[in-house]
Amino acid sequence: GKMTGIVKWFNADKGFAFITPDDGSKDVFVHFSAIQNDGYKSLDEGQKVSFTIESGAKGPAAGNVTSL
């Protein structure tokens, strides 16, 4: 299901971020390909987002990341 959280930090050079979920679970890795914005895919620290949890090769990662 959809979860919500806050972007903890975003590394534009490497194209990934971490989200701190609102439910208090541990921070979730985000690859820029999961960001659903049109055009430039970036996130801002402190931004509120919704996302799903996908199981990636290196463990859980956020999918369908959308700005709220």
Rank of each mutant, 00 (worst) to 15 (best):
K2M: 13
K2Y: 12
M3S: 05
M3Y: 08
M3P: 03
T4C: 13
T4V: 05
T4E: 06
I6V: 13
I6R: 05
I6T: 12
V7L: 13
V7R: 00
V7M: 03
V7K: 00
K8I: 11
K8R: 07
W9P: 01
F10S: 14
F10N: 02
N11H: 06
N11E: 04
A12D: 05
A12N: 12
D13V: 08
K14I: 04
G15T: 05
G15S: 05
G15F: 07
G15N: 08
G15K: 13
G15Y: 06
F16Q: 04
F16G: 07
F16W: 03
F18V: 13
F18W: 14
F18N: 04
I19V: 09
I19D: 00
T20C: 11
D22Q: 04
D23I: 03
G24I: 01
G24M: 03
G24C: 10
G24Y: 02
S25Q: 05
S25F: 04
K26L: 06
K26G: 08
D27C: 13
V28D: 00
V28T: 04
V28S: 02
F29G: 02
F29S: 05
V30A: 03
V30I: 12
H31M: 14
F32C: 14
F32T: 06
S33D: 12
A34Q: 12
I35C: 12
I35S: 03
Q36W: 09
N37R: 05
D38E: 11
D38S: 11
G39Q: 08
Y40H: 10
S42T: 10
S42H: 12
S42W: 13
S42N: 10
L43S: 01
D44V: 13
D44S: 13
E45Y: 12
E45I: 11
E45C: 15
G46L: 03
G46H: 03
Q47Y: 05
Q47G: 05
Q47E: 07
K48T: 07
K48A: 10
K48N: 06
K48L: 10
V49K: 00
V49Q: 00
S50W: 10
F51M: 02
F51E: 00
T52Q: 09
T52R: 05
E54N: 02
E54V: 02
S55C: 15
G56W: 06
G56C: 15
G56H: 11
A57K: 10
K58D: 15
G59Q: 13
P60S: 04
P60K: 02
A61Q: 14
A61M: 12
A62M: 08
A62N: 10
G63A: 13
G63I: 13
G63E: 13
N64L: 13
N64S: 11
N64P: 07
N64H: 09
V65A: 06
V65M: 07
T66P: 15
T66I: 11
T66E: 14
S67T: 05
S67D: 14
L68Q: 15
L68H: 13
